[in-house]
Design a protein around this nucleic acid. Structure first.
Lengths: 347, 347
DNA sequence: CGGTTGGTCTACAACGTTGTAGAGCAACGT
DNA sequence: ACGTTGCTCTACAACGTTGTAGACCAACCG
């Protein structure tokens, strides 16, 4: 066990409260005293005991981040952004993986609080509108992603519909008309899922262009989660079903990368035979063969916004609580080889 | 603030210590009393305050994981494995990113302790043998990866040399003789880096096969870290330098994926013209075009071993401290299309 | 010159938990 | 019948920090 404030106080010849005051930048400390304390701290290599601080002040300086899985690149990169944003503000991040399973997601919300978190960033996948109530109980909570609209908490999301629409418009602009969509979720007609919102953007873009939607072009994925295998499978099925198509809008980059792979196996050339656009702008999409055009939903900004919102909520007095907010960063289309643009290095 | 032990004690009609005893499975509690306490806990939805527990008992149930970056797939997947292993044992994981920078790595070791971690899993990149001393001070610490051998702590690593040798043997077995190596680190002749150890394996395999090593085939990467861009660059240079080669051993999968991309751009066919093998077995390598043969160093097992070692160290009395151990899981070669084998789904 | 103000510091009591010491009581052996 | 044992439970004191209340002193005001 390291030195405590008592040790520092003894060395500096002050009371422990003065040490505490120096550490917490309490203004009324004489410069000379402050220096003595700082010197003592350095001499002893004193570090505050965060458990004690957490007990006394109710804050631990640690927040939680609950995501489906770090094996999904989007969430790994999101975690990277969140951790860096949190670190810049002096917070640690405990990462929990829900596997996208409903029970583990519910658990993450209810069980993570006792883990002495100051707050939780939560990216649910399985929880839906009907679970909004389950989120009301706990401490500061900021939702990430699409699900659970109008919940009792802040929500950082993305322009799913309009960015999906822009993605399809991009395909239309380069002359494609038979645009397949991979990753639709037609099981529960769940209005609040990313899949549904992006599908809606797809339909709008087609409608505006005066193209009738062909249901044969809208493909679901069998796998429970969006991944490369799902994308590959969907693309294989498209080809083997004999559906004619000259472009694919994959609802996530990992799906899109699976599509790229499958198209290669089917001897279809990208973008000559089939153009492909993904969604998420994960690092990997810039290095696939060919590099993949995608929608950058503003992940980095999502992380910063979310951490800042959470910090606000944490420091908020229960009295003057603002009503829950929903914020969305700007999106952009990153044009790459899979739709006929050269890859820009470092993009 | 939620209910405390006092509240539970009052409801159950016992002392707080009895509540504590029930929670900590202290044996001498009458079944009836135990039931009353459990019922009170459930009725109040009581959750122990981990700050208080941490203060009193010196344990917080949280460990740290310091890795270069979650954007590197290998580390994202390692983090996934570690978090799952830790969760199974009731521990939370705070993830810190060092960016592979020396100062941040040193900071991670010295600063993370006050963050009330019970222990730290640390995967250094920049720290070397000369920093072994810096690791002696702190609490339970388990190193991951190659660097800092013979340090004062447990070390979970991998069979770098023999698995690299096996990788090259695989290329030799399929008839390749001009085997390039991408990702060498020739700056500091640092005996303890993954790069050096894998290079050594490469040389041994060639030697055993009676092939003389051609320095023109051994390529460094300009970028500070192993990534796709570095692999692509190295492959482009190989071609443009006019070096003849029929296989590439990439010292990491991300390097290998960059190599695959660059070879495609150079109109070289994989594996017909050039066979490629990587190292790490990240998920992505199974979905590249073509899928990439690689060395699986046993990442999942590394995580489990590391977490278990750390837990042992945490619960160890200072008296009967075992000497530091170094453990390595088994490796295996995962054969895929980039060396002429069909991809096995789910592999 | 007495009273007030405000800057600087200290003493003390919490925060919620667990370790220690020991009280109470039934069962047992002698 | 009485000490001993062992199970069950309780009271109390920590753990290291911060909030509260207030002491002390110099500077200032009237």
């Amino acid at each position: 066990m390291g030195p405590t404030m008592h040790d520092v106080a003894r060395v500096a010849g002050v009371s422990i409260k003065t040490v505490s005051n120096v550490i917490n930048d309490y203004p009324h400390v004489r410069p000379g005293t402050r220096d003595r304390v700082i010197e003592a701290i350095e001499q002893l290599d004193y570090r505050p005991n965060l458990s004690a601080r957490g007990l006394r002040s109710g804050r631990t300086g640690v927040i939680g981040l609950a995501v489906p899985s770090l094996r999904e690149n989007y969430f790994a990169e999101l975690a990277d952004s969140v951790i860096r944003a949190a670190e810049a503000r002096g917070l640690g991040v405990i990462v929990e993986q829900t596997g996208g399973q409903r029970d583990k997601e519910l658990l993450a919300v209810s069980t993570s609080r006792p883990r002495f978190l100051d707050g939780l960033l939560f990216s649910p996948v399985s929880l839906g509108q009907e679970d909004a109530g389950a989120l009301a109980i706990d401490g500061p909570l900021v939702l990430l992603g699409e699900r659970i609209f109008d919940g009792p908490t802040d929500h950082v999301t993305m322009h799913n519909m309009s960015s999906a629409q822009a993605a399809v418009q991009h395909l239309l602009e380069i002359g494609r008309r038979r645009i397949a969509l991979v990753g639709a979720d037609l099981n529960g007609i769940d209005e609040t899922s990313s899949a549904s919102l992006r599908l809606k953007g797809y339909m709008r873009a087609l409608e505006e262009a005066g193209i009738e939607m062909d249901p044969a072009l809208v493909r679901t994925t069998e796998m429970s989660r969006w991944n490369r295998a799902g994308g590959a499978e969907a693309a294989h099925l498209l080809v083997r079903d004999g559906v004619e198509f000259d472009a694919v809008f994959a609802l996530s980059d990992t799906l899109g990368l699976g599509v790229l792979r499958a198209l290669g196996e089917e001897n279809l050339r990208v973008p000559d035979d089939v153009a492909v656009i993904g969604f998420d702008n994960i690092d990997e999409s810039n290095y696939s063969v060919p590099s993949m055009t995608t929608v950058d939903p503003g992940r980095e900004e999502i992380a910063v916004l979310a951490v800042d919102r959470l910090i606000e909520r944490i420091s908020e007095k229960t009295a003057d609580r603002r009503p829950p907010e929903t914020v969305k960063p700007e999106f952009r289309i990153v044009k790459r080889e899979s739709t006929g643009f050269p890859t820009i290095e470092g993009e």
